[in-house]
């Protein structure tokens, strides 16, 4: 099996879309000659031309809105919003339109639009360039939210997204582009809404997604050194959410901690924690633990920024302290 960077898995996913479906085209800032801010579309312009790899002005609202407009009349556009922070200026098109047109038109319109965007902090890009808003999008009926943590999942889920007729936020974590992982040559798909057990275990369940999956895996390894067996669940998607896999795990471990990069207040971990206690209150040996970034804008200074993002040591400490392990 070949190994591949997540960046290359995404490139492959996009090339497949352009090769296999003439309704697909890419639109976004600096995706042409520049090859994308994260080099995902490097070489695309030469191969596919300006019509299908369309550089846009710095006008997120119009290129997301134009994506919506072309999706509802039969195209399958893939737009790239350079980072999730910039979705804020296109929020109306996403929340009020992409998400609602199917409902508001009584099913006459569908919006098969994939919005690729880069999420997460940790790159010393400070307060306005380090945020994670996947949780916000996941709270909106009508949107699907896909948050891959591995090259294998990124390619497999993107293939499923292309067959899905809903608007999708496909959030790629900035620090994961250089992560290497196995990607088989033969075709496969990963269905949306099916979580992955990244590591089986028996004592505690660690739920994570996107960049935090690696943190949870590292924490599980460290806990293992103290003979604490962790089961790591990678949610893969926030919508649809695979709560069943989480509940099954909790029934086995009776302890659960949710690790999420974004702020604690309003974090998606709150929704999951609530869902867990509603569905499996009697299975729990202790409170559901939420490990989130603190409610502070991301600072630039490396040493402070590192304190803001949940780390494996933080997870280990929290699990041991809260569960008395």
């Amino acid at each position: 099996m070949a190994e591949m960077l997540l960046r290359d898995a995404m490139s492959k996913a996009l090339r497949e879309a352009l090769d296999e479906d003439d309704r697909s085209f890419l639109m976004g800032e600096d995706i042409g000659a520049y090859g994308g801010a994260y080099a995902v579309t490097k070489g695309f312009l030469e191969k596919y031309g300006e019509e299908r790899v369309r550089d846009t002005p710095i006008s997120e609202s119009v290129f997301v809105g134009a994506g919506v407009g072309s999706a509802i009349i039969g195209m399958r556009p893939i737009v790239e919003v350079m980072t999730i922070n910039f979705t804020l200026v296109a929020m109306d098109q996403i929340i009020n339109h992409a998400a609602k047109l199917s409902y508001m038109s009584n099913g006459q319109m569908q919006v098969p639009l994939i919005i690729r965007t880069v999420t997460g902090g940790g790159g010393q890009l400070a307060a306005t360039h380090s945020q994670s808003f996947e949780n916000w999008f996941a709270s909106v009926p009508g949107l699907r939210v896909v948050v891959p943590a591995t090259p294998y999942d990124a390619l497999g889920m993107f293939r499923s997204c292309r067959k899905n007729n809903n608007p999708i936020i496909f959030a790629e974590h900035a620090l994961l582009y250089r992560v290497r992982g196995e990607v088989p040559e033969e075709y496969y798909e990963i269905p949306l809404g099916k979580a992955r057990i990244a590591k089986p275990g028996t004592d505690v369940t660690l739920v994570a997604y996107s960049g935090m999956v690696r943190v949870a895996e590292e924490a599980a390894a460290k806990l293992g050194e103290d003979n604490i067996s962790s089961e790591v669940i990678d949610l893969r998607c926030l919508s649809p959410l695979d709560l069943d896999t989480v509940i099954e795990s909790v029934k086995k471990t009776n302890r659960v901690a949710i690790v999420e990069e974004t702020w604690k207040t309003g974090g998606f971990s709150g929704t999951i924690a609530s869902d867990i206690q509603e569905a499996a209150f009697d299975e729990l040996d202790g409170p559901v633990i939420r490990i989130n970034g603190p409610d502070v804008p991301a600072p630039y200074a490396r040493n402070i920024e590192q304190l803001m993002i949940p780390s494996s040591d933080w997870v280990v400490k929290s699990v041991k302290y809260n569960f008395g392990l």
């Binding site: 809105g65 919506v68 407009g69 072309s70």
Partner: peptide, 13 residues
């Protein structure tokens, strides 16, 4: 005004 970008998307199509 939010329909104007969508109209432009239709024209692009």
């Amino acid at each position: 005004a939010t329909h104007i970008p969508q109209a432009v998307g239709a024209a692009l199509t």
